[in-house]
Design a protein around this nucleic acid. Sequence first.
DNA 1: CAATAAATTAGCATATAGGAAATATTTCCC
DNA 2: GGGAAATATTTCCTATATGCTAATTTATTG
Lengths: 207, 207
Amino acid sequence: MSAEQPDMPELKIESGSGLQANVEPLQLGKRLREIRQSLGLTLEEAGKKTGLARSTLSKIENEQISPTFTAVQKLANGLQIDIPQLFAKPRSTMASGRRVLTKSGQGTPHPTSTYEHELLSTDLARKKMVPFKTRVRARSFDDFGDWVRHEGEEFLLVLEGELALYTEFYEPVAMVAGDSMYYDANMGHALVSLSEKDALVLWVVAR
Amino acid sequence: MSAEQPDMPELKIESGSGLQANVEPLQLGKRLREIRQSLGLTLEEAGKKTGLARSTLSKIENEQISPTFTAVQKLANGLQIDIPQLFAKPRSTMASGRRVLTKSGQGTPHPTSTYEHELLSTDLARKKMVPFKTRVRARSFDDFGDWVRHEGEEFLLVLEGELALYTEFYEPVAMVAGDSMYYDANMGHALVSLSEKDALVLWVVAR
DNA sequence: CAATAAATTAGCATATAGGAAATATTTCCC
DNA sequence: GGGAAATATTTCCTATATGCTAATTTATTG
């Protein structure tokens, strides 16, 4: 590869990028009730298993109180539920049979100064991957701010244009349409469009 | 949408996969501090972003109090963290600094009668995702055999051509370049090229 | 409808979380 | 090392979650 490393801005551990799942206004209460009932438990029984009072459970389910974190843990333990499951949207308890189609350009936009993200498949709860398309602005180099760094692994495919992928510990790499990269997202990374035009890439992030 | 559904094998409802994680003795406090610091935020700043008092944050981080669920939500919102991440184990030991570049057309070929797979990023061990590009032969309809079905989730992006994605429990969907689909791979699925030409798609599978 | 079970609510006591300000600790510069 | 500023922790007070017991309401069921 031939990309020459330009003058990089100094590193700074920075905000983990904007690809965070939006914290929906999830209703823990509903969710809990759903789960409890699906287990065929009465409040009484659930109370025994979790060590929480019937009344407390009731109030939690009816969103009259905001349970303590320890209470949530007791719930998770007692009812054998995976915590992330509590945060998934109410919808189907079924894991099978889920699918979400996103037509071209119909994703959820999420613009930043340098990038223009389009989140794909946003409304699917507890996915293992978060896919999105990103337009990297031409000359975004100037804006090159900080490394992006977050949990998980990332797969990147260049759809259009030419760009350079900078990654901590490595030399930057020039990439053109069709090239792809797989890397650990804990490693600082950033993209810069090399050409006059914007570049288009697909990202998939997995926790 | 015009694809007619061919003679499909009989359905089978699959178990929702036992994706239960045991509730570890997670230390929310440590976890939180880790995150906050990795964002380069002081308690003060974090306080502003989350709407919680410095002192409260301090106590939470030091495990002196068990935050209210609403507090946890504020945290998640303010610091842009995905709630399940709070419950994730400390952090995958290392793996930092791994990356693999695959130039266009340089992946590992893997042809079958209907598809022509090109595996990307093959030599990276224990990845969370498996990405590959696939050429779907035109008129592959004839070969339509059985559902493909496996563990995990799948993300699909159409790069070229037109095709139909058949999935169990749903009507088939016509897709063109730029369209994407996210679905549970336990659900039977199959692709058929609708046009004269081959279609090109990108898949990413996550266990 | 009656009888029973389950869920919600009420009232009160207690434990504890949350906010504001004081105090302690660390960091940094001279 | 000695401030001074920044950051973190602790204190104190108020707000609220939790547990009990019991009463009331709302399903279930025969």
